[in-house]
């Protein structure tokens, strides 16, 4: 069935190019999660491994002068799919694995 709400052929870019690359950032994949990672800031040693190993770039390194060692790590819950790599790889158990409640 034709979706009438989408732009017609005259309005679409030639050759199906995407001109605003990186725009999957606007896609929310949180619905994929069954569990979610929760970072316990007190336990976190800022080793950066969760940020390194995340396939979805969903660990954010926040520069914050007030934080321990000048930075902290946050989960981008829009783009986290809940794979659990950060939870599995955290060397100091600073990430909790919490069931999603919907």
């Amino acid at each position: 069935m034709m979706n009438k709400n989408l732009p017609g052929w005259r309005e679409l870019p030639e050759g199906a190019v995407v001109r605003d690359p990186g725009n999957t950032e606007t896609i929310d994949v949180s619905g994929w999660r069954v569990f979610k990672p929760v970072i316990i800031d007190d336990k976190c040693t800022r080793c950066r491994l969760c940020w390194i190993y995340c396939p979805d770039g969903a660990i954010i390194e926040v520069i914050d002068e007030k934080a321990k060692m000048g930075k902290r790590y946050e989960v981008d819950y829009v783009h986290c799919k809940g794979c659990g790599i950060c939870y599995a790889e955290c060397p100091v158990n600073a990430i909790e694995w919490v069931p999603e409640e919907r």
Partner: peptide, 18 residues
Amino acid sequence: IAGGHSACQGCGHFVIIR
């Protein structure tokens, strides 16, 4: 490489590509 793509959970490719 932006998030929001539809690779499977835990896909090794995207750790590498990043």
